[in-house]
Design a protein around this nucleic acid. Structure first.
Lengths: 216, 216
DNA sequence: CGGGATCCGTAAGGATACTG
DNA sequence: CAGTATCCTTACGGATCCCG
């Protein structure tokens, strides 16, 4: 409620007052993938203290970013979802994710990946111009540990969601972070050779994937 | 030093670790307009405690976002500027400013406006598509209190900088925040009639300005 | 005067336990 | 399941002081 003001009449300052507190944009990131219950949010953000999550949700609700909804009977579950205004943070979060992905580097001890992270990572790095150029229409299934997401590239459009997809054109199984492949450090062939990736496709498929979802 | 980790291998999380602390993105916002000395930064952010500014600058430097440079003799001034990586936050800050501008509302007591804020506000709200459609080539001088910035709209490109411009096509003097005009609450004629704006141009000029730099 | 460092009180975050 | 309550620790905010 009394989020400290920056004392500036400025869009950036106002945005930081609304979603600039610790954890807030990560909550928004997960809600951009879809509405969630309190426990789902906790599961996606294991390191957030529960009182901080409760506080953030209240602040975001009061800021008009998040709406708290009680599902109809018999479920009666409490669901958090983005308001239309909150959903407009899409471009902000994608731009932030694109920028931050360049600093990802190696997987640090204790760091986790979730389905929501994978979904947003694919959305943020997608390059419609490159997909359009080849008039691509490809479906990918991406596996990382026991996480599974799929991406449907169609001309310049992209759809990403959790879970498997029926008859994907290419299945990519990552044994570790794909950043070396996606930032051009290694190519598809090397990714296969080092065992970073296995796939039912070819090295060329991996290279095309890296073209569509580059880091940088 | 080691800003607390979110424990997630995610571009958004990494970005928040680098620039997510209080005040950090406002420092970046001002540095996006141009390199600055410590005292300039303080002047642009009057409410930041000096120790927090010093700490942020060190963190941003260590994160590869900001570079600290000592000017050659005889100046020897210490200047802070964005690294190329830091400068790539441009799109993030513009997107945030666009989003946050919709919550600006009335000028709250104690809130200030600076030249850097005006420059970034114009950059963030500019709509190249609308400028291109009319093949516009217009120079604006915008005055707000004793602040003066200018904007040069040329087809779909925009240049904004501090200070006056030679022979502007339209001079706009704002007596208060222009958000009502820019978000469509009122039109140019009403803005003139209520005294919110004075100009050497016409109401139509104000309407075109509002088309080029809309909030929403 | 530019460029900080220091000190202290308060507010927020973090970890854990507990409840309707 | 969806949060509160508690306790502790860290960070922030505000003021002052320092040094070349």
């Amino acid at each position: 409620m009394t989020t400290k003001s920056y004392g500036q009449y400025c869009g950036v300052a106002r945005a930081m007052e609304l979603v600039g507190e610790r954890w807030a944009l990560l909550i928004v990131r997960d809600l951009l993938v879809g509405p969630k219950r309190y426990t789902d949010l906790r599961a996606g953000l294991p390191k957030i203290p529960t009182n901080v999550l409760a506080t953030r949700l209240k602040e975001l609700e009061q800021g008009g970013v998040v709406a708290r909804r009680v599902e109809p009977s018999p479920s009666r579950a409490i669901v958090y979802e983005l308001t239309p205004y909150g959903a407009d943070l899409d471009q902000v979060v994608l731009a932030l994710g694109r920028w931050g992905a360049r600093s990802l580097g190696e997987l640090r001890p204790g760091e986790i990946v979730t389905t929501d992270i994978l979904v947003m990572a694919l959305r943020s790095t997608f390059r419609p111009d490159r997909a359009k150029k080849v008039r691509a229409r490809v479906s990918y299934e991406l596996r990382f540990g026991d996480l599974v997401v799929h991406a449907l590239v169609d001309d310049e459009s992209l759809e990403v969601a959790a879970g498997p997809i029926d008859k994907p054109n290419v299945v990519i199984e990552a044994r570790g972070p794909l950043s070396p492949l996606l930032n051009g450090e290694i190519d598809g062939e090397a990714a296969l050779k080092t065992g970073l990736v296995t796939t039912d496709g070819t090295a060329a498929d991996l290279n095309r994937f890296a073209q569509f979802f580059p880091i940088q």
